[in-house]
Simulated assay, not measured.
Amino acid sequence: MRGARLLALLLGIGSGVAGCAAPVSSQEVVRSERASFRVVEFATGLERPWGAAFLPDGRLLVTERPGRLRILGRDGAVSAPVPGVPEVVAQGQGGLLDVALAPDFATTRQVYFCLAGAAEGGALTRLASATFSADMARLEGVRTLLDAGPAQASGRNHFGCRIVFGRDGKLYLSTGDRYTDKERAQRLGDLAGKVLRLERDGRPAEGNPFIGRAGARPEVFTYGHRNPQGLAVNPATGSLIEVEFGARGGDEVNLLRAGANHGWPIVSYGTDYDGSPVGTGRASAPGIEEPLRHWTPAVSPSGGNFYAGDAFPGWRGNLFLAALRPSGLVRLTMEGDRVVGEERLLWNRTRFRQVLPGPDGLLYILTDEAQGRVLRLEPAN
């Protein structure tokens, strides 16, 4: 349901700690460093919305973590659940997570899902595909394309689960380390804690860095990741940017290069949840890729996307991250693939799970709530 009322929110300027929360009226303008905007409640009534993708006609696909897919109209109206979605393990952090359109969706109606799936031995990160019926009323022909095994019986955390298509036409998929055995992220024969580069049918993509290496899975593109819940292509450079949770601090934004080791759990800028050092206790080491940006204390970043629209000229080319705890929106100013500035917006209000630009040039945010919403940032003028 759409409305013009603003949320009670806080604007935090710069990279420092935000001040006390202050409610704003329905007409109040939020002023940031490079834009002034209002927050509009675009859609409501979603349960833990996690991933989203705009259809060619401007409608929005949204996943709900318990295992439902909805279509949001251009007016914010929420459809009934779309029949035919893949089965999921909706426990802990698992469920129906990301959704992405095939590059040729307009002709194939093909969509991709990342989810927590059941398999022999427990649960794992799964990539699946399906095709919308001609009337867009249901999904047909659901196929499992890849299981990021081995499956794990213990724990229902750290599935990763973002999908993006690169400029090379390949499908990139992030997988989490599954939490209970951190070392999985360093094992090249294990698909947990990785970013995978795949053909559209789930096969290893041609030219992958570990093809032919004994004991290594050919799908692996980068490794040493903890829980990467953000993947985006930099429109200025074509580079792949990854966003991942640390533990107590050590959240990262990374530039991905084929074959790179991003360090988890050998090194980290944070500490473990019990306060103990991670791995060697060092923040960096030779042969391990340095993050473009890291945070301690944590900002708990989930989804991230670049803004390239016209509604906010001052934000063009910036990378936006949806933050869960403390909650808010992190705006990173980019020069090529370098982070040169940071601003925190809408801080300490509601957990944000994903942020994405719309075809209308506006910015949309999914809130991580039992009564989840889609918020839209609109220019104040």
Results as ranks from 00 to 15, higher is better:
residue 2 R to C: 02
residue 6 L to R: 15
residue 14 G to I: 09
residue 17 V to F: 14
residue 23 P to Y: 12
residue 24 V to D: 06
residue 24 V to E: 10
residue 24 V to L: 15
residue 25 S to F: 07
residue 36 S to E: 15
residue 38 R to M: 03
residue 40 V to E: 15
residue 41 E to L: 13
residue 42 F to E: 00
residue 43 A to P: 05
residue 43 A to C: 12
residue 46 L to E: 03
residue 46 L to N: 00
residue 47 E to V: 15
residue 49 P to R: 01
residue 50 W to Q: 02
residue 55 L to K: 03
residue 66 P to K: 09
residue 67 G to V: 01
residue 68 R to A: 13
residue 70 R to A: 04
residue 71 I to S: 01
residue 75 D to N: 13
residue 75 D to K: 04
residue 76 G to A: 05
residue 79 S to Q: 12
residue 82 V to P: 09
residue 85 V to W: 02
residue 86 P to F: 05
residue 91 Q to Y: 05
residue 96 L to D: 05
residue 99 V to I: 13
residue 101 L to D: 04
residue 102 A to P: 01
residue 103 P to R: 08
residue 110 Q to F: 03
residue 112 Y to W: 13
residue 121 G to C: 05
residue 125 T to C: 14
residue 126 R to V: 13
residue 128 A to N: 04
residue 128 A to Q: 03
residue 132 F to W: 15
residue 135 D to E: 14
residue 137 A to M: 08
residue 144 T to C: 03
residue 148 A to D: 01
residue 157 N to S: 14
residue 158 H to G: 01
residue 161 C to F: 06
residue 161 C to N: 12
residue 169 G to N: 13
residue 171 L to Y: 11
residue 171 L to I: 12
residue 172 Y to D: 02
residue 175 T to Q: 11
residue 176 G to N: 07
residue 177 D to H: 09
residue 177 D to I: 06
residue 179 Y to R: 10
residue 180 T to C: 06
residue 182 K to L: 07
residue 185 A to Y: 05
residue 187 R to Y: 12
residue 189 G to H: 08
residue 191 L to G: 01
residue 194 K to S: 12
residue 194 K to E: 03
residue 195 V to I: 15
residue 200 R to H: 13
residue 201 D to S: 06
residue 204 P to G: 11
residue 205 A to L: 09
residue 208 N to F: 02
residue 212 G to W: 11
residue 214 A to M: 10
residue 218 P to K: 04
residue 219 E to M: 09
residue 219 E to V: 11
residue 222 T to P: 10
residue 224 G to W: 03
residue 230 G to W: 01
residue 231 L to I: 11
residue 233 V to E: 07
residue 234 N to G: 06
residue 235 P to G: 10
residue 236 A to L: 15
residue 239 S to A: 15
residue 240 L to P: 14
residue 244 E to G: 03
residue 248 R to E: 14
residue 252 E to F: 12
residue 254 N to E: 06
residue 261 N to E: 10
residue 262 H to P: 02
residue 265 P to Q: 00
residue 269 Y to Q: 10
residue 272 D to K: 10
residue 278 V to Q: 02
residue 282 R to A: 14
residue 286 P to S: 06
residue 287 G to N: 11
residue 288 I to H: 01
residue 288 I to A: 04
residue 289 E to Q: 14
residue 291 P to C: 11
residue 293 R to K: 15
residue 300 S to V: 07
residue 306 F to V: 01
residue 307 Y to R: 07
residue 313 P to N: 08
residue 313 P to F: 08
residue 314 G to E: 07
residue 315 W to N: 00
residue 317 G to H: 04
residue 322 A to V: 07
residue 329 L to H: 03
residue 333 T to Y: 08
residue 334 M to L: 15
residue 343 E to F: 03
residue 344 R to Y: 02
residue 349 R to W: 13
residue 356 L to N: 00
residue 357 P to L: 06
residue 358 G to Q: 02
residue 361 G to M: 05
residue 371 Q to M: 07
residue 377 L to S: 06
residue 377 L to T: 02
